[in-house]
Design a protein around this nucleic acid. Structure first.
Length: 203
DNA sequence: AACTGTTCCAACCGCTGTAGA
DNA sequence: TTCTACAGCGGTTGGAACAGT
């Protein structure tokens, strides 16, 4: 990324990398508006862009396409992503096709950031639990550590590959709770929604 | 205000599948 | 059958933006 090159007479023949400039965007948009999409390598040359066809394709599909929607993934979309991911795993493009205007890249990024957050949170929770168990101070009445299903679905490190068991990623944001129509009302719930998903999938 | 850590996402890379010669 | 070019996909990374101290 940080490899963006400023144009110079020496670099004129080189392939540009890095962030797209407004001028490049306009060139690509104008060309496609006039000629339509085509073979991307020749399109890049014909449009006068010093980019690879691959780069042009990616820029168009993920950013410039008129019907592309970015940001503000709705709770409904969240739910659909979760559902489809449980069926198909990391088939981002397949999932994206079910969400009009969304790109595989965006869904992939969205998923990854959620997962990474969850790995961290769960990892910390497990470490605390382990410590509590090891010192024998785990209360049966107010702490869910003893037989927590979190210990069965060990971590997202495992989930990353076989995503089929990944429903336990449910983030704890309010929107998700609304989507689920399920709310944990007290702190003595032994099974979180994450855990319920895990159990369902393990069965 | 300055610094540091974290999050998010645009873009790249490498690989695979497919079509055509 | 093999080779080449291209499209498409999923994984990864770099850095800007943001949040916290």
């Amino acid at each position: 990324m940080g490899t963006e090159r400023l144009s110079s007479s020496q670099d004129d023949d080189e392939v540009r990398k890095g962030p797209w400039t407004m001028e490049e965007d306009l060139m690509l948009m104008n060309y496609i508006a006039n000629h339509g999409e085509g073979v991307w390598n020749s399109l890049a040359k014909a449009a006068g862009l010093k980019r690879t066809g691959k780069s042009c394709r990616l820029r168009w599909l993920n950013y410039l396409r008129p019907d592309v929607r970015r940001g503000n993934i709705t709770p409904e979309e969240q739910l659909l992503i979760m559902d489809l991911h449980s069926k198909w795993g990391n088939r981002w493009s397949k999932i994206a096709r079910q969400l009009p205007g969304r790109t595989d890249n965006e869904i992939k990024n969205y998923w990854r950031t959620r997962i990474q957050k969850h790995i961290k949170q769960q990892g910390e929770a497990e470490r605390v639990r382990d410590q509590m168990i090891s010192i024998g101070s785990c209360s049966e009445t107010n702490y869910d550590c003893a037989i927590s299903p979190c210990n069965q679905v060990s971590s997202f490190a495992n989930v990353a590959e076989p995503m089929e068991i990944s429903h336990d990623y449910f983030p704890s944001s309010q929107g998700d709770v609304e989507v689920l129509g399920y709310q944990q009302t007290t702190n003595d719930n032994y099974w979180s929604m994450e855990d319920l998903w895990s159990m369902q999938l393990l069965n």
